[in-house]
Amino acid sequence: MNSNAYGLLFLAAWLLLTLGACGPVAAPTMTATWTPTQTPTVTSTPTNTPTDRPTPTITPTASATPTATTTPTLTPTATVTPGPTPDGTVRTANAPILMYHYVSEPPADADIYRRDLSVTPAQLSAQIEAMAAAGFVSVRLSDLISYLATGQPVLPPKSVVLTFDDGYQDNFDHAFPLLKQAGFTATFFVITDFVDAGRPGYMTWDELRAMHDAGMDIGSHSRNHPDLAGQPLDFLVWQALGSREMIESRLGFTPRVFCYPSGRYDALAMQVVQSANFWGAVTVRQGATHSSEHLFELTRVRMRGSYSTADVMRLLTTDW
């Protein structure tokens, strides 16, 4: 074999040895190459972590839904100052609950409903004076309900409850001063969203606070005065519990009485109002004798602009 052949043989052997030696070296090189690829895989784990965090974020959204609020509804309700626990005794009381709305002169272009629901300040003043002269004593609606449920407080023999629906501005401007002057109390049912929005023609939170501080009863007339009959549960909770919580947050006390808007309600609406920790509720049905078995269907006597003082006194002494 010549020198060239030996040279080629030597070169081939060297290449084989070199390639054989590089085999184990190549493996770490591949490992080093895949290591960065594995790193993004690990990085994808944190990517899933933030994705999981929005899931709790959806929970608050569900909480804001009135349906979700239904469950917490009863829990805070129990924590608020408890209402009168019925003692099981069936009681009745003849105490007319008068239903007023506007206390002002209706405008010249007023429709039939506005004129019917309007009692002038002069009319209200004469009615209060006649009631006081006849020995009637005004009591708060919450006191009447408490008496029916527990027997306390004992009501005066000639008790009368004055209620004002909707929360009109003229209630503060005209009714409130007349009531204070006569030493009378009354219950005012307010539409909480209207007050909160500062709607013209309705009382403000500051005015309602001043009335409550002077001994007036403030009750709920729902959030925005809808028909409560045939409504779903979450809507009813939003109206009853929502209005109660708004009064609590704005005025610092828990309202005890509820007024069904336009007198429209059904069995479910009644149950929801009761579960929202109201003590009782009034309707627009006529009547003056109340029972402990119907605290959430209390009847009232509608006051009309066409009534004279003599008409009102006749209604107060009617055997309903």
Rank of each mutant, 00 (worst) to 15 (best):
L208F: 02
T55M: 08
S275E: 13
F296A: 14
A13E: 11
Y6M: 09
T289Q: 05
Q271W: 07
D111N: 15
R91A: 09
D87N: 14
L162P: 08
L179F: 07
S44Y: 09
R140Y: 00
R244F: 05
S243V: 05
S104M: 08
T289H: 03
D143Q: 14
P177G: 11
Y100M: 14
N94K: 11
L268D: 06
T81M: 07
A175W: 02
W34R: 12
L178F: 00
F258L: 13
F235Y: 12
T185I: 10
G252P: 00
C22N: 05
G167A: 10
L179S: 11
F296V: 05
T70R: 11
T289S: 11
Q127R: 06
R250S: 10
F189H: 02
P46K: 09
Y100K: 14
H294K: 13
P36W: 07
W320Y: 06
W14Y: 01
F253W: 00
T39N: 13
Y265R: 10
I112E: 15
P153A: 09
N277F: 08
R91V: 02
L155Y: 07
P153C: 11
F164V: 04
H225G: 01
A21I: 00
M313R: 05
D170G: 12
Q231S: 09
L98C: 13
R199W: 05
E245Q: 11
L241E: 10
G198R: 07
N277L: 08
A182Y: 02
P106A: 07
D116V: 01
R223A: 11
L98Q: 07
G219E: 09
P76Q: 04
V160G: 08
A32E: 15
Q123H: 06
L251I: 03
L315H: 02
N48Q: 11
T65A: 15
F258K: 07
S222K: 04
P46S: 13
V90H: 07
T29L: 13
T120K: 14
T71D: 06
T33Y: 02
L155R: 01
A5P: 01
Q127N: 12
D166E: 13
Q152E: 13
L9I: 09
L298T: 05
D52Q: 12
A26M: 08
M246R: 11
S142D: 12
D227M: 12
Q274R: 15
T59V: 04
L268T: 03
V25G: 01
A126L: 04
